[in-house]
């Protein structure tokens, strides 16, 4: 199986361990990721908050490259996924918008590629059967809550690949790895990452709701699919809360018995090693 890979800016900085773990688990599952040559930033919140045109043109530029490569782009970061998928939806469903974007970029779209979030690519394209077969060390006893965030769920008509109010793909994936996903009500709440730098006081209160709910549900860890959520939930938290936040690919790597996991975990702002060690001891 072969995909185009769009890492996005965060995976080169605050979300490096997401990049490392995605590349490693893809290799372990015989999935070939070809980094999109000369990809450009999707514009993220800053483009769509200030310029509708820029918010379509920047992600669409990456779709042009993916079409040239004739490969579906896999996008790990939820913000990038949301922007690329929104641009793809606009181009595929509205001829006027397609023409406008084509004239901004000086290109023609064939509409042949389909943007996928990394969670979707692993759970639907690769599939849970292949993932289950690859598990060497089940994560037995690990209680987690799956946090999907807002950007892979909404707006549902453009970006959702499953139920936007109660998504299940990550929960099923965690079960396949031997972990125990717990029920909670904050799966698709927003962590406020886009205000993290500018209105930290508000963000502390938004992350606080999510972190408190995770602890109250009895989780030992939060699992996420977004580098902005991961960084925000680990850095914007008040004292006294030590629940770590993993990328789902890191837990795949751990269950696959991959050698590099400690290198990923060292990158975390909240040390997950005590929990990882307790699993190794009991497992």
């Amino acid at each position: 199986m072969k995909f185009a890979y769009y890492p996005g800016c965060s995976l080169e900085s605050t979300g490096q361990e997401f990049d490392y773990s995605i590349r490693a688990v893809s290799k372990a599952l015989d999935v070939e990721l070809v980094e999109l040559p000369d990809w450009v930033c999707c514009g993220s919140t800053s483009a769509h908050a200030t310029s509708h045109k820029l918010a379509l043109a920047l992600p669409a530029q990456n779709l042009v490259i993916a079409e040239e490569q004739r490969l579906d782009p896999v996008v790990p970061c939820s913000a990038c996924y949301n922007r690329l998928k929104t641009a793809e939806h606009a181009i595929k469903t509205n001829d006027e918008l397609r023409k406008q974007v084509e004239s901004l970029l000086g290109c023609r779209f064939t509409g042949e590629v389909q943007t996928k979030s990394a969670l979707e690519a692993f759970t639907k394209d690769v599939g849970l059967t292949a993932i289950t077969k690859r598990v060497e060390r089940k994560l037995t006893g690990l209680k987690v809550v799956c946090y999907y965030g807002c950007l892979t769920s909404r707006p549902p008509e453009a970006v959702a690949f499953e139920d936007p109010e109660n998504p299940q793909s990550m929960d099923k994936l965690m079960k396949a790895l031997g972990a125990e996903p717990l029920t909670w009500s904050y799966k698709t709440d927003c962590c406020g990452a886009s205000l993290s730098i500018t209105k930290a006081d508000i963000v502390y209160s938004m992350t606080g709701r999510i972190l408190d709910a995770a602890v109250e549900a009895g989780a030992q860890a939060i699992v996420t699919t977004c580098p902005l959520c991961q960084t925000n939930l680990e850095t914007r938290r008040r004292g006294g809360i030590d629940i770590p936040v993993f990328y789902f690919t890191e837990l795949m790597g751990l269950a696959f018995g991959l050698p590099d996991t400690n290198r990923w975990f060292k990158k975390h702002m909240v040390d997950p090693m005590p929990l990882v060690r307790s699993l190794t001891e009991t497992g």
Binding site: H52, L54, N94, E96, L105
Partner: peptide, 16 residues
């Protein structure tokens, strides 16, 4: 080029 071109005529969310 993209940044230059978006300075021109605006279009709505439905392309007008």
């Amino acid at each position: 080029k993209i940044f230059d071109r978006v300075k021109g005529t605006g279009f709505s969310r439905c392309g007008q």
